[in-house]
Simulated assay, not measured.
Amino acid sequence: MTTLIIEDEIPASRRLEQLLNKNGFTVFTILHSVKNAVEWLKLNNHPDLIFMDIKLRDNLCFKIFEEVEITSKIIFTTAFDEFALKAFEYNSLDYLLKPIDEKKLEKLISKLSMFQSVFHNNNHLKNIKLHTRPDYRNSFLVSIGTTIRKIQTEELICFFSENNATFMMSNQNRQFPIDSSLEKLQKELDPKQFFRISRKLIINKKYILGVKKGTIETEFSIENLDFKISRLKLKYFLEWYK
């Protein structure tokens, strides 16, 4: 199951991340303010679940919902219980008091498992698999002359859009058109391996040599492709790349 942590206390967020990883969750990233959360949620596909602290450094988390239509299910976390009733107005599954007790978290995860069949019918959680890594796309079929060939995703340097069409570039420096949008590919590709650096390009971490002045360097010379990271995405890229 994929998840996002929105928490302004660094020790608490790191501990929660460790507990979630221990229980098989994939944590996309940790965000520490309403502003950062709004920016991230506007630019990225939403995870299955969000663990969200109510009192953040710059405002109450409810401000996030005023700026973004969140498709994820929400687990609210806070050291105060005064917002419990209000929290359940926002697509929430549960409410955990901090410091989060590991046994209570495990009980919550068990409850999520019980409702797995219900989530299966929800468009946003239909592929949910607790305690296992999500199934991401691992190959593509392409036509080479009269031959159909399977290309593994690990062979692909990047995906890019051009002239209202989408292409993928292999490590053989060959590009192939594919019948898919970058938006759809973002949902199908492993987010730990692929990152959408701009509106027009998704990059494979495997082929990144480094980043210089906001531009990705690769071992391949690809003509007419711009590997510059969008200014709004640079911070999140660096968190992903580390």
Rank of each mutant, 00 (worst) to 15 (best):
I6P: 03
P11N: 09
A12I: 07
R14C: 05
R15F: 01
R15S: 07
Q18V: 06
L19N: 03
L20G: 00
N21W: 04
F28N: 04
F28E: 02
T29N: 15
H32G: 12
V38S: 15
E39M: 12
E39S: 15
W40F: 15
W40S: 02
W40D: 04
W40I: 08
L43V: 11
L43A: 14
N44E: 11
N45V: 09
H46Q: 14
D53T: 04
K55D: 09
R57E: 15
L60K: 10
C61I: 05
E66L: 09
E66G: 08
E67F: 03
E69W: 05
S72D: 03
S72A: 14
K73P: 00
I75L: 06
I75R: 02
T78Q: 10
A79D: 06
D81V: 09
E82I: 07
A84W: 00
E89R: 13
E89L: 04
Y90N: 15
L93E: 14
D94R: 08
L97V: 13
K98W: 00
I100K: 01
E102L: 00
E102V: 05
E102P: 02
K104Q: 13
L105W: 03
L108I: 02
S110Q: 04
L112G: 00
F115Q: 12
S117K: 13
V118D: 13
V118I: 13
H120R: 14
L125Q: 08
K126Y: 06
I128P: 04
L130R: 03
T132D: 07
R133G: 00
P134M: 01
F140M: 12
L141N: 13
L141H: 11
V142E: 11
S143W: 06
I144P: 07
T153V: 14
E162S: 13
M169D: 03
S170D: 10
S170C: 06
Q175F: 01
P177W: 01
I178A: 11
I178Y: 09
D179V: 09
E183I: 13
L185A: 11
K187G: 10
D190M: 05
Q193W: 02
Q193T: 12
S198F: 02
S198K: 07
L201C: 15
N204K: 03
L209H: 07
V211R: 05
K212M: 04
G214W: 11
T215M: 10
T215V: 14
I216G: 01
T218Q: 05
T218Y: 03
E219P: 00
I222R: 04
N224T: 14
D226S: 13
I229S: 02
R231S: 15
Y236S: 13
W240F: 11
W240S: 11
Y241N: 12
